[in-house]
């Protein structure tokens, strides 16, 4: 049975439309006008216990809104959501006991209070029994190497140390579900690597269900076997991270370097390949050209065969899509996921 389940989950915000200036503000007072914004648009999501899921998408895609819906802070406009069988917004407090949350941009520690005191307070807030508290905090201190940090107030911690303490703070009540909202933002490479290691360790020891939002591909690749990608409030991909390149990596590039200047390469190329496939040609200078094509319609081999005789090719390079380039294209809005499963010519919209 899934531990997190959403069906047609939708969140619309009503945003006031205010004409500019003082006059506009006054007009808004007299006759307020609003527009609806759909931040989360009918999401279906099902996460099994112990899964580690990366929840990615460009800024404003609806990631944080989804996390807020799952924590019960926000009430959905439509659809259903359950976390461990509990409807979060209807039962925010019961739900809060089942979840741990780490916000990369906010701390849940107390600025002037030693870390040890903050942990104790969290133990009180979640009403963790004494022996369970000792066992859990003992384990967290050991795994996260927190012993030297316990007497230090949060304001004196470095960002990396703070994140370790924040992670421990989110796990004191042993929640089965952990939300990580951009946890590695601003961390250096070494601290990031350590942080991921901690998450993996805690996952292995406790069978945590982890939902991670991040823009960091390393986080996603190293922590999550499954990736859910959203764009404009809708899920555009839900599957293994490794499969992303296989399913969407159809857009390839062929870079050609000429042995002599050739200003009208584009015309020559069109004549050479004829109507075989749509190719986007970019010629940055007279001695090179880049062809972008759909790997499902034609192959690099076929293009090279046609072009090698028509053009003075000195050197060539084939660019394979990486997960990073696919995600970047989605973020930029230049990759259409709608047509991904069809061999539709419109699929490439570069």
């Amino acid at each position: 049975m899934p531990i997190i389940e959403a069906r047609g989950l939708t969140k619309r915000f009503r945003r006031p439309v205010k004409p500019p200036g003082l006059g506009g503000a006054l007009r808004h007072l007299v006759r307020p006008r609003y527009e609806d914004l759909t931040a989360v648009d009918g999401i279906d999501l099902s996460i099994e216990p112990g899964e580690r899921v990366a929840y990615v998408g460009p800024n404003g895609a609806g990631k944080s809104t989804t996390v807020k819906l799952l924590t019960g802070i926000l009430v959905p406009s439509d659809g259903e959501v359950r976390v461990r069988g509990i409807v979060p917004f209807a039962n925010r407090i019961a739900n809060a006991r089942n979840i741990g949350v780490v916000f990369g941009q906010r701390t849940q520690l107390w600025w002037d209070i030693p870390v040890r005191e903050a942990f104790r307070l969290l133990g009180d807030i979640y009403e963790v029994p004494d022996d369970a508290y000792r066992a859990t905090v003992g384990e967290l201190v050991e795994v996260l190497d927190l012993a030297p940090l316990l007497p230090v107030p949060a304001r004196q911690l470095s960002l990396g140390q703070r994140m370790r303490c924040d992670l421990a703070a989110s796990l004191i009540h042993s929640p089965p579900v952990l939300y990580l909202d951009e946890p590695t933002i601003g961390l250096d490479v070494a601290v990031k690597a350590r942080f991921r290691e901690f998450i993996r360790t805690m996952h292995a020891r406790r069978g945590l269900t982890v939902l991670l939002t991040s823009h960091d591909l390393g986080d996603i690749e190293e922590l999550c076997e499954r990736m859910v990608m959203i764009d404009r409030g809708r899920i555009v991909y839900d599957g293994p991270f490794a499969e992303l390149t296989r399913r969407f990596g159809y857009e390839r590039s062929l870079h050609l370097l000429f042995s002599a200047p050739l200003p009208e390469a584009e015309r020559v190329i069109h004549r050479a390949i004829g109507e075989r496939a749509p190719v986007i040609i970019v010629q940055p200078d007279e001695t090179s050209v880049t062809l972008t094509f759909d790997g499902r319609e034609t192959s690099a081999g076929e293009l090279i065969r046609d072009l090698a005789t028509a053009l003075p090719v000195a050197d060539l390079r084939i660019e394979e899509p990486t997960a990073e380039s696919i995600i970047r294209k989605l973020y930029e809005g230049t990759l259409s996921f709608d047509g991904a499963d069809r061999s539709d010519r419109q699929a490439i919209r570069t």
């Binding site: 107390w110 209070i113 040890r116 005191e117 903050a118 104790r120 307070l121 133990g123 009180d124 807030i125 009403e127 963790v128 029994p129 004494d130 508290y133 000792r134 905090v137 003992g138 201190v141 050991e142 795994v143 190497d145 927190l146 012993a147 030297p148 316990l150």
Partner: peptide, 26 residues
């Protein structure tokens, strides 16, 4: 990670009522 074993890091101060604990921290 030896730190945990060498120093008694986790004390057992006993549970306080939730809102009282918040007030004390404040």
């Amino acid at each position: 990670m030896s730190a945990a074993t060498s120093t008694p890091v986790v004390t057992s101060p006993g549970r306080r009522p939730r809102y009282l604990a918040i007030a004390v921290t404040a």
